Simulated assay, not measured.
Amino acid sequence: MSNACLAADAGCRGPIPDDAPVRLCAAHLGAIAEWQADHDGTVDLLPVSCRVCGSRLGVRFPSGWMCAVCEWAVGDVADGELPPPRLDVVYYLRYADRVKIGTTANPRRRFAAIRHDELLAFERGDRLVEARRHAQFSELRHPRTEWFRYGDELRRHIDVLRVGVDDPWRLHHRWRSELLAAQAA
């Protein structure tokens, strides 16, 4: 195997680093890294928090920044003439040893009216999804309410909804930003 940079035909005589993944000198490896960063972006902290989801993690491109969580272009503004998109969610609120399964398009306002200890999860869906969950967990239901015993079957369902989700609110913000982005397109 030759010790010459693969760009030797172009006159390169630079030494190849011992740990180089391909036979290129440091200068040519650097040029490839810069090209890749321009093409695919560089993950970095955003200069300001994302206005849509609040994340600080971004991807820097030569053309600007994009939120790494919700993919909102930093600096873009939603069309103020368009009504905000409706995002219906099924929510799971815990209070003591019970869980309320309900639906809303405005969770912050709704939760302010419900005594609870913890938001366990969100699931995208409207009253049809909520009705399916009420039927699915009917054996755990407190009669004539939307409250359920926090039994194993319900706990497993909520655990599935929480996979990869550290904070249900961040997931809700991402869904909302996706709808805003689709609306603006």
Rank of each mutant, 00 (worst) to 15 (best):
A31Q: 10
A33M: 15
P15R: 12
I16P: 00
G11I: 02
I32E: 11
L29W: 05
A20D: 03
A10K: 05
G41E: 10
A33K: 07
S49D: 08
H28N: 03
D38E: 10
P47L: 13
A10S: 04
C25Q: 00
V22Q: 08
L45C: 10
A10C: 02
V48L: 14
P15W: 09
A20T: 06
A20L: 06
A20K: 01
P21I: 10
L24S: 06
G41T: 07
L46E: 04
V22S: 04
P17E: 06
L46D: 04
R13P: 01
G41H: 09
G14C: 04
D19Y: 13
I16W: 01
I32Y: 02
P15G: 13
P21M: 06
G11Q: 03
L45H: 07
P17W: 04
A37N: 11
D18V: 15
P17S: 06
L29T: 07
I16D: 01
W35M: 08
I16N: 00
A20I: 02
G30S: 14
Q36F: 11
A10H: 03
D18M: 09
A27K: 13
C12V: 02
V22G: 03
A26K: 04
A26E: 14
C12A: 03
P17D: 08
R23H: 13
H28T: 01
D44H: 14
I16K: 01
D38L: 09
V48E: 15
R13D: 13
P15F: 11
A33P: 05
C12H: 00
D40N: 14
T42H: 09
G41Y: 06
A20N: 05
G14N: 02
L45M: 10
A26C: 09
H28Y: 03
D44V: 08
D40V: 09
A20H: 04
L24Y: 10
G30E: 12
A26R: 10
L46R: 04
V48T: 15
S49I: 05
I16A: 00
D44R: 15
A37R: 10
D38I: 04
Q36P: 09
C25F: 02
L45N: 11
H39P: 03
S49W: 02
A31V: 02
D19S: 11
A33T: 07
R13W: 00
R13Q: 14
A33V: 15
H28Q: 09
R23I: 01
R13E: 12
G14L: 00
S49K: 11
E34A: 13
V43L: 13
H28G: 03
A10T: 01
A31T: 01
H39A: 15
A27Q: 08
V22F: 09
C12Y: 00
A10F: 11
D40G: 11
L29I: 13
H28E: 06
L45I: 03
G14K: 00
G30Q: 12
G11K: 01
A33L: 06
A33E: 14
V48K: 12
P21C: 12
D19A: 07
I16T: 03
D19F: 07
V48N: 08
G11W: 00
A37P: 12
G14F: 01
D40E: 15
D18T: 14
L24P: 02
S49V: 01
G14E: 01
C12P: 00
D19P: 01
A33Q: 07
P15A: 13
L29Q: 06
D38N: 11
